[in-house]
Design a protein around this nucleic acid. Structure first.
Length: 439
RNA sequence: CGGGGCGUGGCGCAGCCUGGUAGCGCAUCUGCUUUGGGAGCAGAGGGUCGCGUGUUCGAAUCACGCCGCCCCGACCA
């Protein structure tokens, strides 16, 4: 992408409303624009990140055997009345009426609807286990939206729902999501710790929150330090096999959010030098809730004995839009964002220090073409800005690599490659740069 | 929902207390000079001060009402 033809509104000054660093940087780097409290428009650069995160989530869900669907944002009130949640959910649910005075709601979650879909088609235990997920916008009319996209009212969430014949099966489904989440967040460059958590209004009796440690996090968490060093399950982990050892390796160690924290147990179970208390951002949560929805909604299947039983379910959420903020909280410096490569909006920022200079332009065009041919996403700054402004802009938007081309280096036949994260710079020939990034 | 704060060119702010019809920096546009870490000079355009009502000869400024946004707390992916 040529910057001169792109839409990248960078802000030199920080908008007054933004308090935390990820929000400030998202506004300054032109990722999002706030349209109302907790409601954001995604600008080109932010959308690219959102899509990359979404893709990783999708790949790992599919790997774990979940099946993607897409449910609507608007739902009829009837489903929610069946489960009793229409009244129970309260003012956080946005309710509206269509022209025929029919009651609709903007979905804050989808247990009711997915259970309706399940019961409409599935009759036998032979169709189980089943895990249906979608990635869709949600709306929760939070009393107090804040922290930019970290606590928006409208947000993009991946929500998965598992269906099993019995509790043992449900436990296996839960474990699959547990392991899938470890992989998902790790691929985004995040260190997450699964923590025992309260189940909240969703219901159920087994739940873990996946927490990214960050000083600005909303949750106070307590855990065993070794959880930070746990190996991430490999890509070829067998999701049809026994995942219990992987899960237990972690759940054996103390980890809890403040809601369920037990100080006495913490001190008894964790040696003093291994105790860690910190702030964290919740980026995902998994629940097992059994027959909470299948019973009232009569989502039943015939078991091997021919008897109909309500299915055992769980739900599994990932805050996709929240992750954009969470990743920035976990990865930035004074100059701006430092994107982990897998979620960076572009792989490489190509900086032309002197547009209009024939040799510099030619060298840049050559690199731009070859790097793209090598499969890299390149943002080519071909604008007439001054070098200083270009450097500052590139650092702000945080692309992992900067390739800097100017007359001074070209005299020696060299261009500069800078690693945004380490700040390390090296001078290479244009050819060597292409080879560096070619796979 | 309780408490606090803010709303003035695109952005960041001053002016408000002590009413007299709007100012600064950045950005934008033009020209010249610059060009390896957010350039310099000269010039130009752009706002009737969130909305409404009231007080007053006169309201960005005072009063009342409304709307929007932010922060702290309780609640949540």
């Amino acid at each position: 992408m040529r910057l001169s033809r792109y839409f990248l509104p960078l802000l030199k000054e920080t908008p007054a409303e933004a308090q935390i660093v990820s929000h400030r940087l998202m506004l300054r780097a032109g990722l999002v624009r706030q349209e109302a409290a907790g409601i954001y428009a995604w600008l080109p650069l932010g959308l690219r990140v959102l899509k990359k995160i979404e893709r990783i989530v999708r790949e790992e869900m599919n790997r774990a055997g979940a099946v993607e669907i897409l449910m609507p944002t608007l739902q009829p009130s009837e489903l929610w009345k069946e489960t009793g949640r229409y009244d129970a959910y309260g003012p956080e649910m946005l309710r509206l009426k269509d022209r025929h005075e029919r009651e609709l709601l903007y979905g804050p979650t989808n247990e009711d609807m997915v259970t309706e879909i399940f019961r409409a088609y599935v009759r036998s235990y032979k169709s189980l286990p089943l895990n249906l997920y979608h990635i869709q916008w949600k709306f929760r009319d939070e009393v107090r939206p804040r922290f930019g996209v970290m606590r928006g009212r409208e947000f993009l969430m991946k929500d998965a729902y598992s269906f099993d014949l019995d509790t043992a099966g449900a436990r296996r489904s839960y474990n699959r999501m547990y392991v899938a989440y470890l992989r998902t967040f790790s691929r985004m460059g995040l260190v997450t710790i699964p923590m025992r958590a309260e189940t909240g209004p969703i219901g159920g009796d087994l739940s873990h929150e996946f927490i990214v440690l960050a000083d600005t996090g909303e949750s106070q968490v307590y855990c065993h330090k070794d959880l930070l060093e746990m190996p991430v399950p490999p890509a070829d982990v067998d999701f049809d096999g026994d995942l219990e050892p992987i899960v237990r390796q972690r759940t054996n160690l103390y980890a809890a959010t403040s809601d369920v924290h037990d100080a006495a147990r913490f001190e008894a179970e964790v040696p003093a030098d291994k105790r860690m208390s910190a702030r964290g951002i919740e980026v995902g949560q998994i629940f097992y809730f059994g027959t909470k929805y299948s019973k009232p909604m009569k989502a039943v299947v015939a078991g091997p004995d021919g008897k109909k039983v309500p299915v055992e379910s769980g739900s599994y959420g990932v805050g996709v839009s929240r992750l954009v903020g969470a990743i920035i909280e976990a990865s930035h410096d004074e100059a701006g964002i430092v994107w982990p490569e897998p979620v960076a909006p572009f792989d490489i920022g190509l900086v032309n220090l002197k547009t209009g200079d024939a040799k510099t332009d030619a060298a840049c065009e050559g690199l731009y073409a070859k790097l793209q041919a090598a499969g890299k996403d390149v943002l080519y700054d071909d604008t007439a800005e001054r070098p200083g402004a270009k450097f500052a802009g590139m650092d702000l938007i945080g692309l992992p690599w900067q390739v800097v081309v100017g007359p001074r280096g070209l005299e020696k036949g060299l261009v500069e490659v800078k690693n945004r994260k380490t700040g390390a710079k090296e001078e290479l020939s244009a050819e060597a740069v292409v080879n560096r990034f070619a796979r």
